[in-house]
Design a protein around this nucleic acid. Structure first.
Length: 348
DNA sequence: GATGTACTAGCCACCGGGAC
DNA sequence: GTCCCGGTGGCTAGTACATC
């Protein structure tokens, strides 16, 4: 059995030096996809993860591509793959090629009657949990043959999946995305208001001066904050809110998920600021907490996608259905802003 | 149509180098 | 020392093609 390793120098040597330089091996579409992924991911390991391949396969294919071209496309450095001049020349042309190919693949789907299409999407857990179930029924009414491939992912991972064309769109918080992701279209789905989640025993209705009107125990609970360690603009925004509105507060827990933060609130350990969608459990609004509307600007939920998918079915129907579900979502259990926070909410 | 051969894609195990 | 990275060797599975 032969092996598949390719000797780059030997590959170059196969070329007749006296003849005009030409490729000795065919350049394949898969190799160009791998080149594109490595150029964007900056390491072979990240690119391999995005492509769903093993890193050695990526290494081999890249070597073959370079051998077929007759020059290096990357300068290999520890934890960094830097494009050479040839790589810089090739990258925009490969991007154009892959864009045309993706458009052709998408366009051809309409001719595949009788064959079930698959809508692939990734999104934040709270968004998928609350919006998707209601939208899927409508999608299936319009397109009975369509199935869905859904995965829960963090925003950075969703962008990587979109970059690698492994999902059709992602459901994320638009205001958490970096400006570098502007190559994707953001279709607004809904606005998710921030709420102050407090233990159900803590009644803030009509409270104008918590220090005077709440019992000492309730006041202590209000001033114990459960915060998030996302390191994002959200973290800073919420931290500023605590400092401004509850200057005597003390952070007692740093959490990595809204679910764990709410479990602390439910147990009476303190309060937390979170998007309303994240406070709705699988069985509906959490019975163990009260939710008060606050003045933090809402989380903007968007469908992140390639522009050519915007009007393409069945994505267009699914996005319209998601918007309808977002509009109809029951936010009635969110209580009005407490009096002592009202001035801040109005000034936003 | 069945079989054998050559080739390709991709995996696992492992190695060496660099960063922390 | 540990972890992460890119690279290599050996292997399996799948496919294309030629031959019988």
């Amino acid at each position: 059995m032969n092996t598949t390793t390719y000797d780059f120098e030997a590959g170059l040597a196969e070329q007749d030096e006296s003849a005009p330089r030409r490729a000795v091996l065919p350049m394949t579409l898969q190799q160009l996809r791998i080149f594109h992924a490595v150029a964007n991911a900056e390491t072979m390991t990240k690119a391999a993860k995005q492509l769903g391949l093993a890193q050695p396969s990526v290494s081999q294919q890249l070597n073959r591509l370079e051998a077929s071209i007759g020059t290096r496309l990357f300068i290999r450095r520890p934890n960094e793959m830097e494009l050479t001049e040839a790589g810089l020349y090739l990258l925009p042309r490969v991007e154009q090629l892959l864009r045309i190919l993706n458009e052709a693949e998408d366009g051809l789907q309409r001719f595949c009657e009788g064959r079930p299409a698959v809508v692939k999407l990734a999104g934040l857990d709270s968004v998928l949990r609350n919006l998707l179930p209601g939208a899927v029924g409508r999608l299936h009414d319009c397109f009975p043959g369509v199935t869905m491939d859904v995965q829960e992912s963090a925003p950075a991972e969703i962008v990587e999946l979109l970059d690698a064309r492994r999902i059709n769109f992602g459901l994320v918080a638009g205001n958490s995305l970096a400006e570098t992701h502007e190559q994707f279209l953001q279709v607004p789905i809904m606005e998710d208001p921030y709420v102050l989640a407090v233990p159900k025993e803590l009644d803030l209705a009509g409270v104008a001066d918590p220090a005077r009107e709440l019992s000492p125990a309730a006041y202590r609970t209000l001033n114990r904050s459960i915060q998030f360690a996302f390191g994002s603009t959200h973290t800073r925004r919420v931290s500023n809110w605590y400092d401004r509105l509850l200057p005597g507060h003390q952070p007692i827990v740093q959490c990595r998920s809204y679910e764990s933060a709410l479990s602390f609130v439910r147990a009476g350990a303190g309060v937390c600021v979170a998007p309303a969608l994240s406070t709705i459990g699988s069985a509906g609004p959490d019975a163990g907490v009260k939710r008060y509307l606050i003045g933090v600007p809402p989380r903007r939920i968007v469908a992140l996608m390639l522009s050519q998918h915007r009007t393409m079915e069945p994505m267009a129907t699914l996005i319209a259905a998601l918007k309808d579900v977002g509009r109809a979502l029951d936010m009635q259990t969110i209580l009005p802003t407490p009096t002592f926070l009202a001035d801040d909410a109005m000034s936003r």
